Simulated assay, not measured.
Amino acid sequence: MAPPPPSNSLTFSHNHEKRHSNHDDQYRLERLLESARPFLRGELEAVDENLPGLVSVLRAAGAGECWHKHGSFLDHLLGVYRILKMWKAPDAVCLCGLFHSAYSNSYVNLAIFPPSSAGRDTVRAYVGLPQSDAELIEHLRSSEISLNKIREGEQEEGEEKGWRVKIQSICPSEGIKVKHIKTGEDVLVSRRLVAVFLLMTMADFSDQLFSFQDVLFENSNGRLEFSGNATLTSLWPGDGKPGLWMNSISRMAAIYTLIVREEEMFRSTEMKNGRVLPAGRDEDLELVIPPVLEGCTKVLDSKDQIVARDLYWEAVCNSAEMGLERAEEMLLRSVEKNPFVGRLMWCWGRFIWGKGALKRRRRRRREG
């Protein structure tokens, strides 16, 4: 048996891995900033040469004149498009996000295009699971094991197949049938398209929800289960707190990941056995994993979400009264409860920067 390496080589290895990890993080950040920069500068043509024209179509249809949550409907449509684009979703999915709900939907009447054949032709010309959080987390763990085994040519163990049985029972490989909203006819929706709808809903919620919807839908437990509809007692915009929607989209993200993994395993098995994939599965739809919630593998606890939001809100609203040190402590605790919110990290970073600037100012005064 070879002797263990000297401690200095272990230190070197650890430092090398740390530098490599930091380099990867820096690269990902640069890529993210690169994709965000055209939106920040309003250079829509740099995102897609057709985007300015599409926005003009929406503007001409009156999207900018319709109120929507915290802005106009046009603002929201662009916001959803921006999120999907930065998540590297396929162009077709991004365009669908840009025109989503343009015929109206079950919740809001924002029909900027008539849901008639003529209206749909217009848009077409431009656009070309109730589970517990613990069960979802366990399914994510099992699915990762299953997927790795399939990729390495190994067989799944019996207990590892439970998540696949659950996903297949909810959303089988052949897709699901839903009723047409107008005619009542059965419409087959492929499993890949179901996954895309989940992805778009995540982006949709991310762009628009805040505490007003929590009051409106009686979301006191933070799970966004639409348990109420307090339209008569909810006054917009309310107190303006951040919304309690992240537990909901983290569960959507987990289900999305499970569908993506099941799709890969299904396709691998079918091709390995020499079977042709059936038609109508929307194989041309690429299922990308958004760079959120650790690659859509973390389910945020609903209670942690509430605690994090309340700590953040108290810190930013009462920092002058409580003092910066106390506010910084509360922000740090907030980040620990919910590390997936950039705003929390940004605020905490401002405190760190401010403390450093204050120390430098005091030092210059002493030296001067």
Rank of each mutant, 00 (worst) to 15 (best):
A2D: 06
P6K: 13
S7P: 06
N8F: 14
N8Q: 15
T11H: 12
H16F: 14
H20R: 14
H23W: 13
H23L: 11
R31V: 15
A36K: 09
P38T: 03
E43W: 05
V47Y: 00
P52V: 02
P52M: 01
P52S: 03
A63Y: 01
W67H: 14
K69Y: 12
F73S: 00
H76A: 04
G79Y: 00
Y81H: 05
K85D: 13
K85G: 00
K85W: 10
M86F: 04
W87S: 04
K88T: 10
C94K: 00
S101F: 01
Y107V: 10
V108L: 12
N109V: 08
L110M: 13
A111C: 08
I112P: 00
P114H: 06
S116F: 08
L129H: 06
Q131G: 06
S132T: 15
I137K: 08
R151F: 07
E154K: 15
E157T: 13
E160Y: 07
G162A: 01
R164D: 05
K177F: 13
K182S: 13
G184S: 04
G184Q: 07
L188D: 06
R192W: 05
A203W: 00
D204T: 05
Q208V: 10
L209N: 01
F210P: 00
F212H: 06
V215C: 06
F217R: 11
E218P: 04
E218Q: 12
N221S: 15
R223H: 07
G228D: 03
L235N: 08
G238V: 06
M246R: 07
S248R: 13
M252L: 11
A254N: 02
E263K: 02
E264R: 06
G274R: 08
R275K: 14
L277F: 10
A279Q: 15
R281F: 12
D284S: 15
V288S: 11
P290D: 05
L293D: 01
D301S: 06
K303Y: 05
D304W: 00
L311R: 00
E314T: 05
G323T: 06
A327Q: 05
S334M: 01
S334T: 03
E336M: 09
P339E: 01
L344Q: 04
M345F: 09
F351T: 00
G354M: 08
G354Q: 06
G356V: 12
R360C: 13
